[in-house]
């Protein structure tokens, strides 16, 4: 449901790869500072949905309310140059994004990501967690209203995941709308304000994590079990 505070709205998105339908009329909306988790089995269409929202791919049908320039995108695999330092990566993309003051923007991102003391290190030498923070920082360079994160915590250890979510929650607290796809179901339960469940390219649920648990009609299940039960009940 779109409201006056809606930052991102997508309606009836359809994407076909030849004969295969990857997205079947998926809609979503998210308000300012809202955290939206997109979950579903493998091949459900999560990455396709995010890449369409990011403007990487064009939908065959449907519309999106926000121009891609106002959306920050953080791909699943870090999109960074390993031979460049943290600062050089940030500076390059800040210049390509034509930010008004690239140097100040980079300074801000180094502060935000807590990577000031690693700014001179080549990205190829960083840990997975730090690399992902740089990856997210690049997505934030143009001060986007919406940040799309595709499997942001993949490959991170629990401590790194914790620090990453602290960072994301801080962004949302500052008003950035965050849409993230994840396989890590507890992350959806723990951090999401809104949950979108995709299965076979179709949106099968849109609501809060508690509403998903209630929708299964069972009790005593943890959230991951409730999610699996929900899909089973709907034949997925």
């Amino acid at each position: 449901m779109e409201t006056l505070t809606t930052t991102l709205a997508a309606r009836d998105l359809v994407k076909r790869y030849g004969e295969r339908l990857a997205l079947r009329g998926v809609s979503l909306s998210a308000g300012r500072g809202e955290l939206v988790a997109v979950i579903g089995p493998n091949g459900a269409g999560k990455t396709t949905l995010l890449s369409i929202l990011a403007g990487i791919q064009r939908p065959d049908e449907g519309m999106i309310s926000v121009e891609p320039e106002r959306i920050g995108w953080v791909p699943q695999q870090a999109s960074l140059y390993g031979k460049l330092t943290v600062e050089e990566n940030l500076m390059l993309f800040a210049r390509l994004e034509r930010t008004p003051d690239p140097k100040a923007t980079v300074e801000r991102m180094l502060e935000l990501t807590d990577l000031r003391n690693r700014s001179g290190d080549q990205v190829g030498t960083l840990s997975g967690g730090n690399r992902q923070r740089v990856n997210i920082a690049i997505g934030l360079l143009a001060r986007p209203e919406v940040l799309l994160l595709d499997e942001p915590s993949t490959g991170l250890d629990p401590r790194q995941r914790e620090r990453l979510w602290e960072f994301i929650l801080r962004l949302a607290g500052e008003g950035t709308t965050v849409v993230y796809a994840t396989h890590h179901i507890p992350e959806a339960d723990r951090y999401a304000d809104q949950l979108i469940v995709l299965a076979d390219g179709e949106r099968v649920f849109d609501g809060s994590p508690r509403e998903l648990e209630q929708a299964t009609g069972t009790t005593g299940l943890d959230f991951e079990q409730a999610f699996v039960e929900y899909l089973r009940q709907r034949g997925h």
Binding site: G55, I56, L80
Partner: peptide
């Protein structure tokens, strides 16, 4: 290989 291509052609280049 650096996975930078999609980010670059998203309006940057």
């Amino acid at each position: 290989e650096e996975n930078a291509f999609p980010r670059l052609v998203r309006g940057l280049v």
